[in-house]
């Protein structure tokens, strides 16, 4: 099954949706080392795409290129019709439409949970403080920790911190959410609470791109799974195809190690 076939299969649910993220031949070098080798993929609006693969395969690099935390050297990346170039205005526009959740949470330790969430809406979206705070409390309610609003990040558990980080991204009302290994730094008993929030998000219809090793999550909510190795997308398919009938040997090897 070729990449195009798999894309068609995934498109059933998303038929008629517009392209949200388009990557064409994206190259990225760290010195002599090529981290991304001509990555080409399209993610539709409302799609949940899971990216997996062994460590060092370029998953994180790719997802970080999409909101310009890393600069790609070759190819094109277009997000919601805006091309990522060196033009600062484009970068700012894309960043305010793309939310990102990090492996290490990266909450601002000197601000309360509420201030973490309302900072960008107030200063980037220019919302009145009262409105921003009301939205922040609603979001905290949505991620299940309404009672932690006045605390500092350091006083929360890892799972709670990651949920605050998700709320912080959602506060910008993004059209796309990027997740860079959101559960890898968590203790096992906290992974579920974060995944539950992500599942709820996926059902709400937001476009999501998730780098993760949580195969259960991928099987349950992904529209499409992309398998990367050595800076290339090796295999693309629906969860069904990916877990039951992978075509590539490298995918089979990876699955045998991880499952």
């Amino acid at each position: 099954m070729s990449i195009d076939d798999a894309t068609t299969a995934a498109n059933d649910r998303l038929a008629g949706s517009e392209d949200m993220i388009v990557c064409v031949d994206v190259d990225k070098f760290y010195g002599d080392f090529q981290a991304l080798k001509g990555v080409t993929a399209t993610i539709k609006e409302g799609e949940v795409a899971v990216v997996c693969g062994p460590s060092g395969s370029g998953k994180s690099t790719w997802i970080r290129c999409i909101n310009r935390l890393e600069v790609h050297q070759g190819g094109d990346i277009v997000v919601d019709g805006i091309e990522l170039t060196n033009d600062l205005r484009n970068i700012e526009k894309i960043r305010s439409e793309v939310g990102m959740v990090f492996q290490q949470f990266n909450l601002f330790p000197h601000l309360t949970v509420l201030d973490n969430i309302t900072l960008a809406p107030i200063w980037v979206r220019k919302k009145p403080r009262a409105e921003a705070e009301a939205m922040a409390r609603a979001l905290l309610d949505r991620v299940g920790i309404p009672e932690q609003a006045e605390k500092f990040p350091g006083q929360l558990s890892g799972g709670q911190q990651q949920r605050v980080a998700i709320a912080r991204s959602l506060a910008m009302e993004p059209r796309v959410m990027l997740f860079d290994e959101p559960t890898s730094a968590l203790d096992p008993e906290m992974i579920k609470e974060v995944l539950d929030v992500m599942k709820e998000l996926a059902r709400s219809g937001i476009t999501m791109m998730v780098v993760t090793h949580e195969m259960g999550f991928a099987r349950e909510v992904a529209d499409r799974i992309m398998f990367m190795e050595g800076g290339e997308i090796v295999e693309v398919g629906t969860p069904e195809h990916f877990f039951t009938n992978p075509t590539e040997d490298r995918t089979k090897l990876f699955l045998s190690q991880i499952l």
């Binding site: 909101n67 310009r68 935390l69 700012e92 960043r95 305010s96 793309v98 939310g99 990102m100 990090f102 290490q104 990266n106 909450l107 601002f108 900072l119 960008a120 200063w123 980037v124 980080a165 912080r168 991204s169 910008m172």
Partner: peptide, 20 residues
Amino acid sequence: GQYEAADAIGLTPAQRTGFI
């Protein structure tokens, strides 16, 4: 990570410096 998080939520460099 603090710089990246500030960038990712769309703060300008001046706001990033001043607030974070």
